[in-house]
């Protein structure tokens, strides 16, 4: 009985997700965050398997948006569509629109390389380039984009300081990126992304491999970063979503079930499915 009701409520009436988003924005109107990115009926496939079903979600500027939902519901796929990383997987494709400052990044003639320059990404598993030194890892993005900073040391220091890693590595900058601990590697990857000064930072479970101390540092970091960056973070950790995010989007089997201000979503979820998930009844 419950299941039937829940699935009815979660059924995708195209307006519902959008309505929730709009009312969330209306409530946040006091601080009036502009919309940085917006997906419109975004769908994604791996081969014939449709993993995102018409997701419409807006991502406010200089705010943290958390994406939550049970494993396999399409969270990673969703954020990988936001910087066109989804399409690099063989057999993967997508449909619908993703607006970045009002321009559809899937429009003909838009270069995915330039999109990724503006929309940076930190992956679930830290992946520094092991053949490069720590400093070169930080500078890799700039070099790839043909930027030769006049004072590379300053760029390295600034990015590493932002990622709360500078003090730990300032004396070993020429060591391999792979010589760091897992948590340090993840912060190095964050520094590498920040060095490019993207406008949006996507983080896919950045803390899943980290201990509580490293996790706390990254959460602190997210707090500091949101003055300058628009952040989208995927997390399995409800407390983390509640701590770091301003807005939360709940996904279930490829659909956006509910989206709104984090406080509201966690205290007064509108959908039964959301409530079940955040109270730990499934997933």
């Amino acid at each position: 009985m419950m299941a039937v009701e829940a699935s009815r409520e979660a059924a995708p009436t195209p307006g519902s997700a959008g309505d929730t988003a709009r009312s969330a924005e209306a409530r946040a109107a006091a601080t009036a965050p502009a919309v940085k990115m917006q997906t419109e009926a975004l769908r994604a496939w791996f081969g014939a398997h449709e993993v995102l079903k018409a997701v419409s979600l807006s991502i406010p500027e200089r705010r943290v948006t958390a994406v939550i939902g049970p494993s396999g519901c399409g969270k990673s796929t969703f954020i990988r569509c936001l910087n066109r990383m989804h399409e690099v997987v063989p057999g993967a494709r997508s449909a619908g629109a993703v607006l970045l400052d009002g321009v559809d990044i899937f429009e003909r003639g838009v270069d995915p390389v330039l999109v990724r320059r503006r929309v940076g990404m930190v992956f679930q598993r830290a992946n520094p380039f092991p053949a490069m030194s720590i400093a070169d890892n930080v500078l890799a993005g700039l070099r790839l984009n043909g930027v030769r900073p006049r004072h590379p040391e300053e760029v390295v220091e600034r990015a590493l300081a932002q990622a709360a890693l500078w003090d730990e590595v300032k004396d070993i900058l020429s060591r391999s990126g792979a010589s760091l601990s897992g948590g340090q590697q993840q912060r190095l990857c964050i520094a590498r992304t920040l060095a490019l000064e993207p406008e949006v930072v996507l983080m896919d479970e950045p803390c899943s491999a980290l201990d509580p101390i490293a996790t706390a540092r990254i959460e602190e970091l997210i707090h500091e970063l949101k003055d300058r960056y628009t952040i989208v973070i995927v997390t399995h950790n409800m407390q983390q979503a509640a701590r770091v995010s301003d807005f939360t989007a709940f996904f279930y089997i490829g659909e956006l079930v509910e989206h709104g201000e984090t406080d509201a979503l966690f205290t007064r979820p509108q959908k039964a499915r959301t409530e079940d998930y955040i109270t730990g009844r499934f997933g």
Binding site: V88, V113, R116, M121, R125, N127, F129, N145
Partner: peptide
């Protein structure tokens, strides 16, 4: 993961 790291940094 290395390829994706480079691509996400705006590598061709």
């Amino acid at each position: 993961s290395y390829r994706e790291a480079a691509l996400a940094l705006g590598a061709t």
